[in-house]
C-alpha cells in the first residue's frame, strides 16, 4: 500500500509539473482531484476536532462518552447551544429560500473579528510599533568602535526617519511638494529597500519548496532502481 501511495504521489507530482510545458488534461485532472480532496479534508478536520469534542461532547456528554472519553461524567454545558444553533443557521446558505438566515451567523463572525482586530491591531501593530520606533535613541555612544558607533546612530536615524518618511508618503490628503515631497521621496526609497528584501526572501522561499519536491522525486526514483 505504501508503494502504491508513493506512485500515486509521484504521478500526481509529474502531472502538475506538466503545466510548466503547457496546460493539459493531466494537470486539470490533478488540480480538480486536489480541490475535491482538500475541501473534504478541511470539513472532516473541522467536524472531528471541533464540532465533536467542543460542541457535541459539551451538549450531550453521556451520549458522546464512548467517542470522547473526557465527556464521561461531565455536566451538560447548555450555553454552547448558542454556537450550535448559529453554526446550523450558517448552513442555510445552501438553501436559497432561507439563505438570508445565514447573515446572522456571518454577523457573529464579523462582529467577533472586528471586535478582536480593533483592540489587537491597535495595541500590537500601532501603539507598540510607534513606541518601538520612538524609544530608539537618536544619538548613542554605545558602539564597539567609532565605525560601529557611527553606524548605530545612522541605523537609528534610518528607522525613525524611514518610518516617518514612509508614513508621509502614504498621506495623500496633502500634495507631495516642497519639503513634504522630499520626505515622501525618502519614504519611497525606504519602501523600495523593504520590497527588495522581500523579493530576495520570496525567491528563497519558492526555491525551498522546489527543493522539497525534487527530494521527493529522487526518493521515488530510488525506490524502483
Amino acid at each position: 500500500m505504501e508503494t502504491l501511495q508513493l506512485w500515486i504521489g509521484a504521478l500526481l507530482t509529474l502531472m502538475i509539473f506538466s503545466f510548466l510545458y503547457r496546460d493539459n488534461p493531466f494537470y486539470k485532472f490533478a488540480e480538480h482531484l486536489f480541490v475535491g480532496v482538500s475541501a473534504a479534508y478541511w470539513m472532516v478536520q473541522g467536524f472531528w476536532n471541533e464540532i465533536v469534542p467542543n460542541l457535541l461532547a459539551k451538549l450531550f456528554p453521556n451520549q458522546m462518552a464512548n467517542i470522547v472519553e473526557a465527556a464521561r461524567g461531565s455536566q451538560v454545558q447548555s450555553h454552547y447551544a448558542i454556537a450550535g444553533i448559529l453554526g446550523l443557521i450558517l448552513l442555510t446558505r445552501l438553501i436559497p429560500p432561507i439563505a438570508w438566515l445565514s447573515r446572522w451567523s456571518m454577523a457573529f463572525i464579523i462582529g467577533y473579528t472586528a471586535g478582536t482586530n480593533l483592540t489587537r491591531y491597535l495595541s500590537s501593530d500601532f501603539v507598540t510599533q510607534v513606541q518601538s520606533t520612538l524609544s530608539r535613541p537618536l544619538i548613542t555612544g554605545s558602539g564597539a568602535n567609532w565605525f560601529d558607533t557611527l553606524m548605530l546612530n545612522f541605523s537609528n536615524l534610518v528607522i525613525v526617519g524611514g518610518v516617518l518618511c514612509g508614513l508621509i508618503y502614504f498621506f495623500f490628503s496633502k500634495e507631495h511638494t516642497g519639503a513634504f515631497g522630499k520626505m515622501s521621496r525618502v519614504g519611497i526609497w525606504v519602501l523600495m529597500v523593504a520590497f527588495g528584501a522581500s523579493f530576495g526572501y520570496t525567491v528563497m522561499a519558492r526555491i525551498s519548496l522546489l527543493i522539497g519536491r525534487i527530494e521527493f522525486l529522487r526518493g521515488w526514483i530510488l525506490s524502483f532502481l
Binding site: 500590537s124 507598540t128 510599533q129 513606541q131 518601538s132 523593504a194 528584501a197 522581500s198 526572501y201 520570496t202 528563497m204 522561499a205 525551498s208
Partner: peptide
C-alpha cells in the same frame, strides 16, 4: 516562518 513572511515580522523584533 517561511521566507516570504520573514521580512514582514521584523517590526516585532525584539520587543514582541
Amino acid at each position: 516562518v517561511t521566507a516570504v513572511e520573514a521580512p514582514l515580522l521584523y517590526p516585532y523584533y525584539p520587543q514582541q
